[in-house]
């Protein structure tokens, strides 16, 4: 007697695998410009941000898909999108 398999995923970090592989650009935090407002952490659609003890953002590169929303939303241009594989 077969046991039915359902196509469901329970919420957990990386339940769809390490989506960082999808990325071709990565966000890099420019710490000197950062005002620790936390908007990047709020806007990240994949919860790929953490905040350190001082409130500075840390990108979780295993899961960050490189969508660039954080860089777009940063009010002080403290996030730069950098090509993963260099120019050309």
């Amino acid at each position: 007697m077969p046991e039915v398999m359902y196509p469901i995923a329970k919420p957990a970090p990386g339940s769809a695998g390490k989506t960082g592989y999808w990325r071709w650009q990565k966000p890099v935090i420019i710490r000197e410009k950062c005002t620790r407002c936390g908007l990047c952490w709020i806007y990240c659609p994949d919860s790929a941000y953490e905040l350190d003890e001082e409130g500075y953002p840390i990108v979780l590169y295993d899961w960050c898909k490189g969508c660039g929303i954080c860089a777009h939303e940063c009010p002080v241009d403290a996030i730069k999108m950098v090509d993963e594989y260099g120019e050309g």
């Binding site: 469901i8 995923a9 329970k10």
Partner: peptide
Amino acid sequence: NPVSVGNLPTAEQHYMLRKNIWDC
């Protein structure tokens, strides 16, 4: 008991889900 239905699994999981429909 929150779950999401039908999001992105691996190719092997997809294969096994279709195989499970066959068995059932």
